[in-house]
Amino acid sequence: MRTSEINKRPVVTMAGEDVAQIRDVIYSAGGGAVGGFTLSGRGLLAGPMKQALAWTSVAALGADAVMIRDEDALEPTQSVLDASASAGGSGGNVLGSQVLTDSGVDLGTVADVVIEVAGMTGGQCDVVGYEIEASEALGTKGTKLLIPLPDTLAASGEHLMVPASAKDFVAQDLAGFGASIDAFRAQLRETT
């Protein structure tokens, strides 16, 4: 799913109370995984909250709500940010970053982030790809394309480095994207 779809999604306890809503994603592992979420209060006038939600405290990320066990799952924002940063997180925003291949070709700019929850509860929430505004290098300038990512990658906030072969595995929509990611990562494993 795209991270833009998660924004404003309610955070609901198993007791059925909506305690917050998602404000933004906190990345860890160099931008390769979701470390947690910053939160806003519920309601029209509610602003950002001082508490955040670490990914490890998320019971489930569903289509309509982010489920948590109870309110104790929330913790001070700073501690979630610190935990993600110590796991190699940029903590920063990748949207708008230029996607460069290791051969120095500009593929476009990041418009959205595609994530996938691995397996059962407690599994990692991986960043598996980016939706990019394509550059000329992809031959379809201006269109939105999905580009798969390796397990780990380097991100500086300005640039995002991907292997040159990533451009052979771009997809037009999420439906065919899962297969692209698998094929891309399999190919990377073969070459290394």
Binding site: P10, V12, A15, G16, E17, D18
Partner: peptide, 10 residues
């Protein structure tokens, strides 16, 4: 049934 709260029945 797991919970009944102001937002939802879980």
């Amino acid at each position: 049934l797991v919970g009944v709260g102001s937002y939802a029945v879980v």
